[in-house]
Design a protein around this nucleic acid. Sequence first.
DNA 1: CTTCTGACA
DNA 2: TGTCAGCA
Length: 121
Amino acid sequence: MQNNIPRHLAIFPISFVEEITNLTARQIRYYEEQDLIHPVRNKGKQRIFSLNDLERLLEIKSLIDQRVNIAGIKAILSSREQEQNAVAKDEFAQAFSKKELEDIVHGGSIALNSACSKRRT
DNA sequence: CTTCTGACA
DNA sequence: TGTCAGCA
């Protein structure tokens, strides 16, 4: 079971993304230009995508197929992100006791790695 | 050879 | 959005 690639780890070239999403490189670059996605760049200035970028592009693809314009996609994606952050924030707070949270913010005994590993996926 | 940016018959 | 040029 070594199928745990960090979702934010950028490792895919645009050619791979084109095959998986069925989007053209032109479209992918355009969506980045519209701030719908923010793939990382390597030293050669080439875009490198993560699983998060892939999923995001698939959603954009879906919305495009439904004839949603860029503005609409931005609104939908950003609002959904806010919901996610709200949920994540809530789960994080519930995963630790009040003392643990205090120790974390006060640089206590609980390490950041420990904090991350304690979160649910 | 692959990707990138800029431009437009 | 497609596609071609000229680089890296």
